[in-house]
């Protein structure tokens, strides 16, 4: 693909963080990040464990209170929103560990994505069902609709979680380590799914450890360490950056590269 980073100057930003910081006592989990998410692009965040990636996702969804900084979505400052209002703005997320209702069917778990965002009228409920069906088809779990999550494989549980987020029909999807614990083939499926969602214009922010997948999937990479942004730009250039290699991949990888 031609480097989308170069034309991001013309692409409007759907989301902007300005000087965002989250401190827990003396720990500066996120310390003054500023970046934007261009509409319709996939942006990835790389960083070693404890570099503040998940805290950043928590800050964007307003789960974690900001120490300072502003968050803007579609041009509006939503930094004082309570967390449950964020999904209503069109921001959906998945979690690092799959979180499903084990006692409910796959279909019901996916419907949960629509339950608070769609009204209770008969037509609206029918549309919610259609949304859930489409989301399950896209993630390849429609044949599991009647199953219970505790009977599913890890990869399928992940699919259900992504389906639930898609059923929310978000404008921005935050994906926290979507392929952790997956095999190569499953990872490629997830990657393909994200690219097909991008083709429809869905902006995505991915936190992920698999460097190869990030390079293949993302338009832009942000590399974090110690709560700060160290490099951002074209994925291939970012992973070749010496600072990133040292922080994230370790010195050994630098030798191999």
């Amino acid at each position: 693909m031609s480097s989308p980073w170069n034309d991001s100057g013309e692409t409007p930003m759907i989301f902007e963080a300005d000087d965002v910081a989250v401190h827990f006592g003396g720990v500066k989990a996120v310390d003054g990040l500023s970046f934007g998410l261009p509409e319709g692009k996939i942006v990835g965040i790389l960083g070693p464990n404890g570099s503040g990636k998940s805290t950043l996702v928590g800050a964007i969804t307003r789960h974690v209170p900001l120490t300072r900084g502003t968050l803007r979505f579609l041009g509006e400052d939503y930094g004082s929103d309570r967390a449950h209002l964020v999904p209503h703005r069109g921001i959906a997320r998945t979690f690092q560990t799959v979180r499903l209702l084990e006692e409910r069917t796959v279909l019901e778990n996916v419907l949960l994505g629509t339950d608070s965002l769609v009204g209770g009228g008969r037509d609206e409920r029918r549309r919610a069902h259609e949304r859930a069906q489409v989301a399950m088809q896209r993630t390849g779990c429609e044949h599991l609709a009647k199953e219970r999550p505790d009977e599913l494989s890890y990869g399928n549980r992940r699919r259900v979680e992504i389906a639930r987020a898609i059923a929310m029909e978000p404008k921005l999807l935050l994906v926290d380590e979507p392929t952790a614990g997956m095999g190569r083939a499953e990872k490629e499926e997830v990657s393909a799914l994200m690219m097909s969602l991008r083709a429809e214009g869905l902006t995505q922010l991915i936190v992920e450890h698999d460097v190869q997948m990030m390079v293949d999937t993302c338009d832009i990479l942000l590399a974090m360490n110690f709560g700060k942004l160290i490099v951002e730009g074209d994925p291939r250039e970012v992973v070749r950056n010496p600072a990133v290699q040292e922080a994230y991949l370790g010195k050994q990888a630098v030798k191999h590269a």
Binding site: E108, S116, M168
Partner: peptide
């Protein structure tokens, strides 16, 4: 479903837009 989510996983419930 929403009540179940509020009980089982309040953080998830919030992320799904439940007050």
């Amino acid at each position: 479903r929403k009540i179940d989510t509020v009980r089982e996983d309040p953080e998830l419930a919030v992320a799904l837009g439940i007050n």
